[in-house]
Design a protein around this nucleic acid. Structure first.
Lengths: 188, 188
DNA sequence: TTGGGTTGTCAACAATCGTTTACATAAGGT
DNA sequence: ACCTTATGTAAACGATTGTTGACAACCCAA
């Protein structure tokens, strides 16, 4: 949103531009790797405005986090379709540059303890607990957490680390394996 | 190894002290989070020696990585015992402070691209490929990589993020679930 | 048109980083 | 004992970081 052609002064707009730029930068480089000046430049404004509108980098990170982990569309499926749908989702996901991905943001920010704590709380409330309610059986919290950790591990290995064995070339092989693992946690 | 009582000059000893301090610091804070001065202080020497002996921080990180991922004791077990043994290993692992853990080092360094590349290459060669050879069946590389990613995800969620649902309190519930997942990848 | 508050910019601050240079000191052969 | 080399220390450099305060420019109401 580096729209400098029209310089209409609008606090809410620049605030939103900073937030969007921050989400992208944090996704690409993590909380520590992304700089305030770099975010401000991508938002088309000055770095000082980041502090004026958000109070600091950490609070900007917290603001970038709200509503990020609302990935509950899959939960509207019938339970017998969930595993295959989620496996297809995991496998069909493509990594584009300059985009906001809460999973990247989380994975690349875990070296920062306070950022990690924010991420953990957000995931626990908006993902793990929701999935546990949906599973709704014996040890549902553990099964939900294992689904989440499996998802995170796959994301980490495939996209962040770039494992060759988990590359796009093997999607047809990977999808059923992933689905089977997920089904195991759904059945309990 | 901050042994300052006896100041015997020994290049190899301090080199090793720096390496050990680096492994611990990198495990706790990651490649970017750990500072050279902090490592040198933990090693009981000056920060300049880090550059003299290793050529720089990145090369120190690379040196701290060699031989780190030799976790192949489990492969000496018979195949039918592997899943349960690895599940017990994952569940019985305790996180101590001031210790070297290559998995922590890897997870907390993925925000640094060059560090991540070094880690990925090391894991691919010393873990994933070795496990694939051991599995030795159809899609063995994918099955091995999924074991690794599952392991990483569990490590990340339980130890680094501190997921409550995967805490020590639920070890008896978690172990058989983990074992079942692993067994799925072993059988293929 | 004028004043006041909002919005944005600029420059500098203090801290930290990895790194380098210059210098001091211990060790060991001659 | 002396001299050379190896080993360790100290200080500073340049770059970057998040943050802040002073200042300028704009918008809007009176």
């Amino acid at each position: 949103m580096a729209e400098k052609t029209i310089k209409t002064r609008n606090a809410d707009a620049t605030k939103e531009a900073i937030l969007e730029a921050a989400r992208i930068a944090f996704s690409e480089k993590g909380m520590d790797g992304a700089g305030v000046r770099e975010i401000a430049e991508a938002a088309g404004c000055n770095a000082a405005l980041v502090n004026r509108y958000f109070g600091g980098k950490e609070q900007l990170f917290a603001a970038a986090l709200v509503g990020a982990f609302d990935m509950n569309q899959l939960l509207e499926l019938p339970k017998e379709d969930f595993a295959e749908a989620m496996a297809n989702y995991m496998v069909s996901k493509r990594t584009e540059c300059k985009t906001f991905d809460p999973m990247f943001l989380a994975l690349r920010s875990i070296s920062n303890p306070s950022a990690m704590q924010l991420v953990q709380a957000e995931i626990q409330r908006h993902v793990t607990d929701v999935y546990a309610d949906w599973l709704d059986g014996e040890n549902c919290h553990q099964r939900a957490a294992l689904i989440g950790s499996f998802f995170a591990g796959f994301y980490l290995s495939r996209f962040v680390m770039g494992s060759k064995s988990l590359s796009f070339d093997h999607d047809e092989v990977l999808a059923p394996m992933i689905a089977k693992t997920l089904q195991g946690y759904i059945d309990g």
